[in-house]
């Protein structure tokens, strides 16, 4: 369906033109200015290159072999999933454009056909994920339901070292801002309890020695986070080049 901004159209013609039921008569009196790329930002490329999984990014010469074989792009017709393009946007540092794909990028199913076929030895799948990580770490992508679920899942797991499905369910429902009708919840809970697939409250599983192990794990996660921030701020410190 065409988008018609009436203020951009002068209606001084008598011919009536209709497209898909919308009146588009008149002459367009303006051009939309094309978006101009005005700077090359090296930060994304520098950071991706500095990561062990991302260092092959700079080999890419944009031949498109990866995209041609990508099952998401071709078989599933997800045209916007274009690994070659993601790499180019990262190479020239076009962050604004790249951010549009911050969630799409994670739809890669890691079939690795691209890696097998790349004539320059770019580890496309790893590079794409590294670019995705950059976007995520720099806080660009709006949090998706999947992201919220991941967060709830990790927190739940860290508590006892084993999932508590009932509380995970409650937390996630709360994060999504919705509640299941009590009747349905009871019905589902009862079925799950009876089949032994749900153990909660006094029946919940426990991991032996979790207190100690969990502390180590939490420490490790914190450490990872610290390292990630340090590498990002190192890349950011190099800065752009605006005059």
């Amino acid at each position: 369906m065409p988008i018609v901004e009436k203020s951009l159209v002068t209606v001084d013609r008598s011919d009536r033109l209709e497209m898909e039921g919308i009146d588009v008569s008149g002459d367009w009196n303006t051009f939309l200015r094309s978006r101009v790329q005005t700077d090359l930002d090296v930060r994304i490329l520098d950071w991706v290159r500095s990561q062990p999984q991302g260092d092959t990014i700079s080999r890419c010469w944009q031949c498109g072999t990866c995209t041609a074989g990508c099952c998401l792009h071709t078989d599933y017709g997800l045209n916007e999933f274009n690994p070659r393009y993601f790499i180019y946007l990262a190479q020239v540092g076009y962050e604004e454009e790249l951010r549009k794909y911050a969630t799409t990028i994670w739809r890669c199913v890691s079939c690795n056909k691209c890696v097998e076929r790349c004539p320059k030895g770019v580890k496309v799948e790893e590079v794409i994920h590294t670019i995705g990580s950059y976007l995520e770490f720099t806080g660009g992508a709006p949090e998706s339901p999947a992201d919220r679920f991941d967060r709830a899942y990790t927190e739940n797991l860290l508590r006892r070292g084993v999932l508590d499905e009932a509380s995970l369910f409650r937390t996630y429902e709360r994060l999504e801002g919705r509640t299941m009708p009590a009747g349905e919840m009871l019905k589902m809970g009862f079925q799950l309890l009876r089949s032994g697939r749900l153990r909660t409250g006094p029946l919940a599983h426990r991991t032996r020695g979790w207190r100690q192990f969990g502390n180590v794990l939490r420490e490790k996660l914190k450490e990872d986070e610290r390292r990630r921030r340090a590498s990002l701020s190192a890349a950011g410190g190099r800065g752009g080049h605006s005059p």
Partner: peptide, 12 residues
């Protein structure tokens, strides 16, 4: 023009 981006570029 960045012919891969299909976009005009004006870079300092």
């Amino acid at each position: 023009e960045d012919t891969i981006l299909r976009r005009p570029t004006e870079v300092p």
